[in-house]
Amino acid sequence: MCVAYPGKTLSIEGRMAKVDFNGNVIDVNIGVVDVKVGDYVLVHAGCAIEAMSKEKADSILEIFEDMI
């Protein structure tokens, strides 16, 4: 139904944040989540729909060691 991807909050300015997705930095609206710099957010269409820990973000992505 919807593509969403977790990334790390780099900086916050009002309702907007810069979020890092493994080197890709995108402006994201964080108006409906509680986050501080360093937290991870799940982002859909430029909007953070949930905040989470790094461990949870990693678990969502299911990192494969062989994908270097």
Partner: peptide
Amino acid sequence: AGVAAFCGVM
């Protein structure tokens, strides 16, 4: 890895 994340987001 950066391209993989880009693809994931988009």
